[in-house]
Design a protein around this nucleic acid. Structure first.
Lengths: 229, 229
DNA sequence: AAGATGGTATATGTATGCATATGGTGCATT
DNA sequence: AATGCACCATATGCATACATATACCATCTT
């Protein structure tokens, strides 16, 4: 990672360069390689990935449409920075939409899906007990993805995924706090219980509680004065 | 509109060409100038707007990200066509999200906003009574926009707007049926009543009913066998 | 010395040209 | 006549080159 070789943008001969660039940059944003405010310099990215500016531009345009990039000085693009108020909006929107997914999912999930979710929560319990934040973060992402899928609505899943990616840079460090691991896990178990009981309204309420709690935690970490909205 | 002159893409010297192209194409999709399945040929669009392919490509890429374009044969793009199942997903998602906006809006609207919404509904009553479908369509769009704004959440407003544009090509002809005018207006009045009563839950329920009713109507128009899901 | 103004450097915006992939068409063969 | 293969046409994918706008910096003026 410390050498100056070309970055991996996935299998060399799969799909248009712009598509792979977009995916690569999104990954960098999610895993913290690119942080909010970082410049998305066209020539730098082009050299970095060993391509011309044209596909880079297209990828960046798409990032902007996805709400992951914003215009900076000199018409440049940079990774979108969310002021506290906007982050609050985002987390609230996510809260509402994920809750809707949970409600629909509770009514529509197949038996297999229910078991998958149960297994995911069980593994989460182990990770939480072991205090393994990294493993828990992965299982948390998987848990929410399973809920999105269970809603059986591609458009809803798409917007939920978009909002979740936007929040990713701010959610990152959340599971360093081991106490958040435990409370998050408890909330997951509450959602699971509602899903297994096939109680849509309870699932919606539990999910809203979970995402709201997560949001509050994120905002606390970013601002010690802890606005409660 | 029948000559072969260059199409108007807005003020000649405002912002990058790609931005204006994007807006122009979106408008065309909304007003029916471009219909689902229509090819988004790069050279044709470039000649049509009097620019090179580069900004056209960027605009089309953005359309794809917005869910308004899809890939067709030969890697080309065309205006996205929604199969019945996907249209159902879209309308359901819209229903849920607009209902959330209505709930939040009912709790957050200012007195001025309440009056604006009331005025909008009043004008809608006149248009509906006069059987003026075109005027009613405009007022309907305005009504929903006011509700989005009232939720005071930019991210929610953004996704709601995105989904609404995706559905636009299919909603278009809805207000040719004068009976739909009347029922839609009645539903608007129900939502307004809940908002004026500052009853968020009632507003959410009323909005969900309204969008669901609209969705059913759209699906009936597109498929006489009227799947009820 | 401080501020304003003009120049310059750098990065984006657009156009053009070449490479390539894909789908269609026509011919040949079975 | 139907099917398979090869060729070709066309539109997209990418790269390069030129145009332009903006921010920074230096210099000049007050």
């Amino acid at each position: 990672m410390a050498d100056d070789s070309l970055l991996d943008i996935g299998p060399t001969s799969v799909g248009p360069t712009a598509d792979r660039l977009y995916a690569a940059i999104v990954d960098q944003i999610i895993d913290g390689g690119l942080r909010p405010g970082d410049a998305l310099n066209e020539v730098a990215l082009a050299e970095r990935f060993g391509v011309s500016r044209t596909p880079v531009r297209e990828a960046v345009q798409r990032l902007a449409m996805a709400g992951l990039a914003e215009r900076g000085a000199r018409r440049s693009f940079r990774v979108r920075r969310l002021p506290p108020a906007e982050l609050g909006d985002l987390l609230e929107a996510l809260c509402e939409i994920e809750a809707v997914c949970a409600r629909l999912g509770a009514a529509r999930m197949s038996e297999v899906e229910r078991q998958e979710l149960e297994a995911c929560v069980r593994e989460g319990a182990e990770a939480a007990a072991a205090g393994d934040g990294e493993a828990y973060a992965r299982l948390n992402a998987r848990f929410h993805q399973l809920v999105f899928d269970s809603a059986r609505n591609d458009h809803l899943k798409e917007v939920a995924g978009q909002l979740r990616v936007r929040a990713a840079p701010y959610r990152e460090a959340q599971f360093r706090q081991t106490d958040r691991l435990a409370s998050s896990q408890a909330e997951h178990e509450g959602i699971l219980a509602a899903v297994l009981a096939k109680d849509p309204d309870a699932a919606q309420a539990a999910m809203m509680l979970h995402v709201a709690s997560s949001s509050l935690n994120i905002r606390r970490m970013l601002d010690p004065s802890a606005p409660k909205r």
